[in-house]
Design a protein around this nucleic acid. Structure first.
Lengths: 170, 170
DNA sequence: TACAACCAGTTGCAATTTGCAAGCAGTCTG
DNA sequence: CAGACTGCTTGCAAATTGCAACTGGTTGTA
């Protein structure tokens, strides 16, 4: 069950936990896409993860303490997945990956806009977003709430680009 | 040759380039361990990469423009691998992974010390280290050189912990 | 109360990727 | 000229991935 670690290097250990092609995408969707149910993660992902892989990754992330699962009171079969503090703190890794990909890889416009805002916002914006995630996932109330949240701002920017694209296509 | 991308999301694209269990470890060894030759990367890595995997990863990193390869003038068969600017800018991702692993995973003392220093040093220290890497890999001279370099400081801290461990074992 | 749609997964199987060990041709060293 | 060293390559078994179909249950609707 517990496979032996290759080394005690922090980078290696992190890679052993989230160093595959899907785990961080699942976490990304939970963070930026508000996906909390199995079906949402399965069908609303841009990359099209298959159900067995998703089930396996969720199980591993659960075992690692990166997410939790609880029953949805509104539906007996639904489970709600939440990020733990440990999971929320993966955000800086995702933010850095996002910035690097935005700079060097062929990112589409609509998916790049979030990367740009997040990069321009810097660690301060990340911290604010992590506070919002703590509120949504761990139930920790945050203090100051002035203006739209980071999540809302990212979403609004994405919608705006999508709307522009749609109008161009007509 | 060019496999189709799953999506134009920057995080996904980054994961398609370095989102496997070995690529970032190779880059880590080039950055923090001064490994520049095939054999060095093969034998001096804590995790024990096998030669076919290493050859494949180096090839892919070359194709992606993250590293370059040139002949070693001192030995006709030796190649020297260098990080490109694009490769050097992976450092913040490694630094964040290092910090996360240090915080949440069972990191050994001697391998954790670098993580701690790098985390405490923050983005400013990362930028300084990246400048040192630019000098060593891309040949860009850096300006101010006051005191020991970040690379030297990390190495010295590591040696110190190792020395302590050795003396304890006697 | 029947029925379709939806829920979280599981199962079977083929294709790909990984990991180990051995091997290889050329190069340098004593 | 022998032996060690160079950057890889090859063969093969084991593990992982990905697709598609399927399961057993729940929920909303007529």
């Amino acid at each position: 069950m517990t496979e032996p670690e290759r080394s005690g290097c922090p980078i290696n250990l992190t890679l052993e936990v989230v160093g595959d092609k899907w785990s961080l995408l699942v976490i990304r969707d939970m963070m930026f896409g508000n996906r909390r149910h199995f079906r949402e993660l399965l069908t609303k992902s841009d990359e099209g993860i298959s159900s067995n892989i998703l089930a396996d990754r969720l199980k591993r992330l659960l075992e690692q303490g990166i997410i939790t699962r609880e029953d949805d009171p509104s539906h007996k079969q639904k489970g709600i997945y939440s990020l733990t503090e440990q999971g929320i703190e993966l955000l800086p890794i995702l933010a850095q990956m996002s910035a690097w990909g935005y700079k060097y890889l062929p990112v589409t416009e609509e998916l790049g806009i979030r990367a740009r805002l997040l990069s321009e916002g810097g660690p301060k914006m990340w911290a604010e977003f992590m506070d919002e995630l703590r509120e949504a996932h761990v139930g920790v109330k945050r203090r100051k709430k002035t203006g739209p949240s980071v999540g809302e701002r990212l979403q609004a920017a994405y919608q705006k680009v999508m709307a522009k694209k749609a109008s161009n296509r007509i």
